[in-house]
């Protein structure tokens, strides 16, 4: 009786811990959170042309800073992302580097802008600037969510019993890349009024 009970207990425990759908489910979660990351970076890229135009209207001779933003944006948006970018360390690193480049170019622009009170009072600029800040926030949230889902996915792949399940049922599943939280890249443009 006791032995049987224990056997049932351990079987239940093993089954409870051994979710055979965990790998594909977490894989989908990673995909969804990755699209969110891309979506927010895209949103930022879309804001930049208008922002640059508005700044030009007031601060035309800051052309060097503006050029840097345009170039960084071009570099970030022109990159062709491979289908499996989340499993491709090189492409992932490249993506992260390009976006970090744009982040710091924008941060410099926002510092320069501080010297133009008329620009800072422009309604359109205020709207664009708050959207940019909001987008940087959303990027931070999306990155954090992505890091969390990848962590769950990778843990599942690397630990027992997920490791065993994956080896048998999902031999294609690979560990995914995640963001390294570099301080400079995380910093949203600091804007003070």
């Amino acid at each position: 009786m006791l032995v049987r009970l224990l056997a049932v207990f351990f079987t239940v425990l093993a089954l409870a811990g051994c979710d055979i759908n965990a790998v594909p489910r977490l894989d989908e979660e990673v995909k969804a959170s990755w699209s969110q990351v891309q979506n927010q970076y895209q949103r930022r890229a879309d804001l930049i042309p208008n922002l640059v135009e508005t700044v030009k209207g007031y601060a035309a001779h800051e052309s060097q800073t503006l050029e840097a933003v345009i170039a960084a944006r071009a570099k970030a948006t022109s990159m062709q992302l491979p289908e499996n970018v989340t499993q491709d360390p090189e492409a992932f690193r490249q993506f992260q580097e390009n976006q970090a480049g744009l982040t710091s170019a924008l941060a410099r622009l926002m510092v320069v802008v501080e010297q133009y009170p008329n620009l800072k009072a422009d309604q359109q600029f205020i709207a664009l600037q708050s959207q940019l800040e909001g987008t940087e926030n959303r990027i931070a949230v999306a990155r954090k969510d992505y890091i969390a889902t990848v962590q769950r996915y990778n843990t599942e792949l690397r630990t027992f019993p997920g490791r065993f399940v994956a080896a048998v049922l999902y031999p294609d599943a690979k560990v995914k890349e995640t963001f390294t939280a570099s301080e400079a890249a995380q910093q949203a443009p600091a804007v003070k009024f």
Binding site: E133, G134, V141
Partner: peptide, 9 residues
Amino acid sequence: SFGGGGASG
């Protein structure tokens, strides 16, 4: 759920 929309001051 929330995704970071809004503004701070």
